[in-house]
Nucleic acid binder design. Structure first.
Lengths: 223, 223
DNA sequence: GTCCGATTTAATTAAATGATTAAATCGACC
DNA sequence: GGTCGATTTAATCATTTAATTAAATCGGAC
């Protein structure tokens, strides 16, 4: 009947038979899952945001579950490798601190909802933590952790012996560093409310952090 | 038909006409919401865990929404006031650091899922952040933040002038301190996977943190 | 014994939601 | 021109889930 209107011509709808469609769906799902969580997200919202119909989502991903896993994997791959790479590298310890701070804060500023999403997902699916690390690094999760710890421990011990650093367990070192970088984004809504920030205010806050965090952290390492 | 079995006699079901039932439901909801998130939780699971029937949940809370709000409020009241109280008190700055670390780590050790739950909820309902702070403190969220900042700033400035402390914005100070305390619990699943901890291992990790965190932090504050 | 709130039983409703299908269309490539 | 994969349309199915009701029960207070 009234199927006329503007159905047929799809000017906003790029024909896109190029193979980007799967990506479009992934992107839309990413956005929706990010702001609603996997459980709270509705596939309908995703298809709408992607500009496709439910049949197409089914065509590519079959179920919401699989789509969620794909999105989660992609998100994690976007966040983990950088830190792991830096911490496990053979750069000087002080270099690592500076690099982690810069890399993380810069990246997270662009995707401020990532930490909340990832932590939230892991809280409800702890089993994914292991799978995730394996998928990203290609080794057993505990192994990559152990490797990083070993590298850090060696560097720390050398400095402690030289009287240049206060002793600290490498695990505590890593968690402290990560906490400082990630937490502000994970707690963003609360911080914005309590500190009276708007988006710009938050960005300024992070900007300052980017300058002062590494020095702050390095001061804590002094003997 | 087969309604016989053991329906009628309720030995496991304490009669509890005392008024604790509402609490029982709240507790059950708390547990379920905590491990599944509000969106992922099913009221059925809650009633089951509370040992009551759906009608009773409806009798007390009407909807899942209201129940969720009640649980969230209660959870937040369990977490916020302590820190706010300490930071806004007139104790010495070094005292505050020590007290926050001790209070938070001790409390969170007993309720390790709280941070994940709260951060997750706030990520999906940012508007609650404000309401929440108001409800807990009885003042505008930005105001309590400003008050804390003011107190801290005065203490920091005094120490900076005395050459005993490196300058730092009070907001950065507070966020750093909170991050160190809260993050390990929020990221617990991931840390356990990567560091190869089991529950006991995690507890040991936190135990060590309880001893070393305040000194670490105070070192970072030195000039 | 009766009244009353707490609680249960049992069912039902209404809506949302995810999954799935069949058939048509469209564009590209051969 | 025909084939093929991508995509749409439209519709339906099955299930879950929250919400809700009416009526019965139960225990204690009065």
């Amino acid at each position: 009947m009234i199927k006329s209107t503007s159905q047929r011509k799809g000017p906003p709808r790029p024909p896109a038979p190029d193979g980007q469609t799967e990506q479009r769906i992934l992107d839309a799902a990413h956005a929706v899952f990010m702001r609603s969580g996997t459980a709270g997200a509705r596939t309908q919202e995703i298809t709408k945001e992607a500009g496709v119909n439910p049949a197409l989502l089914h065509y590519y991903f079959r179920t919401k579950e699989r789509l969620a896993e794909a999105v989660f994997r992609r998100a994690a791959c976007q966040l983990l490798p950088a830190v792991i790479g830096i911490l496990a590298s053979d750069a000087e310890l002080e270099e690592k601190v500076e690099q982690v701070v810069q890399t993380e804060l810069q990246h997270l500023s662009k995707t401020p909802y990532l930490p909340g999403y990832i932590l939230s997902e892991l809280a409800h699916h702890p089993e994914r933590a292991g799978q995730l690390v394996s998928a990203v690094t290609g080794m057993v999760p505990a192994e990559i952790g152990a490797r990083i710890s070993a590298v850090l421990r060696k560097q720390i011990n050398a400095r402690v012996r030289a009287g240049r650093m206060h002793p600290i367990e490498p695990e505590q070192f890593a968690v402290n560093l990560l906490a400082m970088c990630v937490f502000p984004f994970a707690a963003r809504p609360m911080l914005m409310a309590m500190l009276g920030f708007d988006k710009a205010g938050f960005d300024t806050f992070i900007e300052r952090r980017r300058r002062e965090l590494a020095p702050f952290f390095l001061r804590a390492l002094r003997p």
